[in-house]
Nucleic acid binder design. Structure first.
Length: 455
RNA sequence: GUGAAUGUAGCUCAGCUGGUUAGAGCACUAGAUUGUGGUUCUAGGGGUCGCCGGUUCGAACCCGGUCUUUCACCCCA
């Protein structure tokens, strides 16, 4: 018995109907990126493992898909390590390539590699799939598309503002209500510094993040379990219970961490970004949220996250500033800031909210029925002119198929018009044009057909 | 990586405390209709009940394992 065909866990096929809608997302995202002066690049699906490993933290290394070396890959593997079943060490001996985990690290590699050919500030966008060996669940896939926009080689906060404008414009065009959460790594560093625990940024942030879920007592309990002294936890209280407008939050934060130079720097950055954004007037809501911990491994300044207001699916866009991402590849003092749109989640959101427009632009407008060799040849001539007029059109290929079947084909593909040409029509130099929706048909000439179908 | 659920026709699912030949709707094919789809009517094809093993006179149903999918945790788009 033939084995049932299937695809790997967490991956998906996309039907023509889905691709029309996916392309709608890619096209609008791309359009906005280009409008702001970003240019496309692409990088290979696989990178050397050395450029990938250690960039995403311990967890990230586990989630990397590794590619087995070609040929007799066990030949050079250490026999004792194999015998010990030491997966981690054996891996490095039998695999030197991996699938990209995101687009940011390959981009950093790209910038360093072509630094002499790149004009800074370098603004690029990149829309490609990435792979993570995660366990799939709602809105989480093992292969998914990211749409990254980054600018490197500029420290100006105007870049942060521009990215927020891009977020605003993309979601306005897609008609999705979103909330943009803003944080700043420097503020978090200032908090940790102020309470004398500079190493504990992540523990603190992760704990604060759970306030909604587990409540204040549990958060404090968790902080204590992480080894924070009581005094530090006490000083954290105003931060944990931070509420109010962005301005109110900033003033509370300032009163707590005002003595930390880096913390103040962070506050000033946020204030600059917020006031600039306010001046140019974005339609999306911006909320200062200190619990944003994403990408903490390499972000150094602003951190962004975007959530859909009307669907619970996690974040659909995220990003931030990284002062030294290219540093690990040997290029110092190049700062970058960027964001990534999660196309697959955006697709899910738009599907759930039924936001996709009726899009027949990519589909066939008129099908020519095929009655035989002579008729097909005649239709082909007309077809060229119809296409010349910018109308998507096709001829049914098999003249042995009954008209019933050919009509069925048009119906299934939702082709709005069918052109019927037999002996009679050919003699009269006319076309029997049937409008599928109404079922009505009329005898027309080519110019009329183009006018009716093209309308 | 941890915990829980799920798997019956191409799809969505029914199938009684284990009982003989496993069903429905949709989809598909053909005909009613040899130049007319979507509606209607008629007929038909399609399943070793995820896989392997066990219990039993007998398993889609009970038990064990395994894989798949889904949900939550961790983390993340």
């Amino acid at each position: 018995m033939a084995q049932k065909p299937s695809i790997p866990k967490g991956t998906r096929d996309f039907s023509p109907a889905e691709m029309v809608r996916r392309n709608y997302i890619f096209d609008t995202v791309k359009g906005v990126f280009q409008r702001y002066g970003y240019l496309p690049i692409e990088t290979p699906a696989m990178e050397n493992l050395s450029t990938l490993m250690g960039k995403y933290g311990e967890e990230g290394d586990k989630l990397l898909f590794k590619i087995l070396n070609s040929g007799d890959y066990l030949k050079d593997a250490d026999a004792t390590l194999l015998a010990e079943k030491n997966s981690t060490k054996v891996t490095s001996q039998i695999s030197e390539k991996g699938l990209r985990y995101d687009l940011t690290v390959p981009f950093a590699r790209f910038v360093v590699q072509y630094q002499n050919d790149i004009t800074f500030p370098f603004k690029r966008y990149q829309i490609q799939p990435v792979w993570r060996a995660d366990r799939p669940q709602k809105g989480r896939y093992r292969e998914f598309f990211q749409c990254d926009v980054d600018v490197v080689g500029s420290n100006s906060l105007l870049n942060e503002v521009e990215l927020m404008q891009i977020v605003d414009e993309v979601y306005r065009r897609l008609n999705i209500n979103v909330l943009l959460k803003l944080n700043n790594r420097k503020i978090l560093a200032g908090i940790a510094e102020t309470i004398g625990q500079p190493e504990r940024i992540i523990d603190i942030t992760v704990a604060i993040d759970k306030l909604d879920k587990i409540g204040l007592d549990k958060v404090n309990q968790e902080l204590a379990e992480k080894g924070l002294p009581q005094e530090a936890i006490d000083r954290l209280q105003p931060i944990i219970q931070l509420t109010g407008t962005n301005a109110e939050k900033l003033s509370v934060i300032r009163s707590v961490i005002g003595s930390s130079a880096i913390g103040v720097k962070g506050i000033e950055e946020v204030e600059t970004i917020l006031s600039t954004v306010a001046a140019i007037g974005l339609s999306l809501d911006v909320e200062l949220d200190l619990t944003l911990a994403r990408g903490l491994n390499y972000y150094t300044g602003a951190i962004f996250e975007v959530k859909a207001k009307d669907v619970a699916i996690g974040s659909i866009t995220g990003g931030g500033r990284y002062d030294d991402l290219t540093g690990i590849f040997g290029l110092k003092n190049v700062s970058g800031v960027g964001i990534s749109f999660g196309a697959d989640r955006i697709y899910d959101v738009m599907t759930q909210l039924d936001l996709f427009p009726e899009n027949h632009a990519a589909t066939t407008k008129v099908l020519f029925v095929n009655f035989g060799e002579k008729e097909a040849l005649y239709a082909l001539g007309l077809l060229a002119q119809v296409r010349q007029a910018g109308i998507n059109a096709e001829l049914y290929p098999d003249n042995s198929d009954k008209m019933k079947k050919q009509m069925g084909y048009a119906d299934k593909k939702q082709i709005p018009f069918v052109a019927i040409i037999g002996d009679e029509e050919m003699n009269q130099q006319k076309i029997m044009l049937k409008a599928m929706q109404s079922g009505q048909q009329q005898l027309v000439d080519l110019a009329q057909l183009i006018e009716i179908v093209g309308a």
